[in-house]
């Protein structure tokens, strides 16, 4: 794809209000793309690539995403399978069926599986804050080169448990076991880590995802 074509990709970042929009916005700008903020009252999602970033609690995130029936328009955007969505951290978790953070909350249900609190041996520190490595779980060709031997930044207390392990793109070791640190289900991508906060490795990953 030529540079000219790439720059025409319409990228939108969904504003869930509890998000830190600024860092992902700056990261995409820094790579050289045009990007706009998508409010939840937007009627027509005229984008090629949407990013659902996330800081905050699951319930608040879902509350904001269901405002103005935005969740329905988002599902309509994703289901045909032509356009991509990248959920980051809470954004990845919202793609799943439900979460038991504070109370049981229904998610977008685009990926089969649940979000659960880390359960570990007693001594493990939660939240999992900091840099950690990822291990490729399957033939995720377009993550590959930008992931190997790199560390990414994680901040979370809850983890995604996809029903179909084949959709788990990478796994990460924390405490005494692995958890699913990214997912790819066709056009739906999610990272538990923050590529926009992972230094040069994260910027390179975003580059390869947006290509």
């Amino acid at each position: 794809m030529s540079d000219k074509k790439i720059s025409k990709i319409k990228i939108g970042i969904i504003n869930l209000k509890t998000n830190n929009l600024y860092s992902i916005y700056n990261a995409i700008k820094n790579i050289g793309y045009n990007v706009s903020i998508v409010e939840t009252n937007t009627k027509y999602l005229n984008y090629d690539f949407l990013i659902l970033p996330g800081v905050g609690s699951y319930a608040k995130g879902m509350k904001n995403i269901t405002e103005n029936n935005f969740n329905k328009r988002l599902i309509d955007f994703i289901l045909p399978g032509e356009k991509k969505i990248l959920g980051i951290c809470l954004g990845m978790q919202l793609l799943f069926e439900n979460s038991n953070e504070f109370k049981m909350t229904k998610g977008l249900g685009l990926i089969k599986g649940k979000v659960k609190k880390f359960k570990f041996i007693q001594k493990t520190i939660i939240p999992h804050i900091g840099w950690n490595s990822v291990v490729l779980n399957n033939k995720m060709n377009y993550f590959k080169s930008s992931l190997i031997n790199k560390k990414f930044y994680f901040v979370h207390s809850y983890v995604c448990e996809p029903a179909d392990i084949n959709y788990c793109g990478t796994k990460t070791f924390y405490g005494n076991k692995y958890f699913c640190s990214s997912i790819i289900q066709k056009n739906i991508i999610g990272t538990q880590f923050h590529p926009e906060k992972s230094g040069k490795a994260g910027i390179n990953l975003l580059k390869s995802l947006l290509k």
Partner: peptide, 28 residues
């Protein structure tokens, strides 16, 4: 704008509004 690692911010945070302002300014 050009630093892509987490930024933690403190000093004078008194209420939810302060937190929201810092986060929307780009603090992680």
């Amino acid at each position: 704008k050009n630093i892509f690692i987490p930024v933690t911010v403190g000093g004078g945070i008194r209420n939810i509004k302060d937190v929201e302002m810092m986060l929307s300014s780009g603090a992680d």
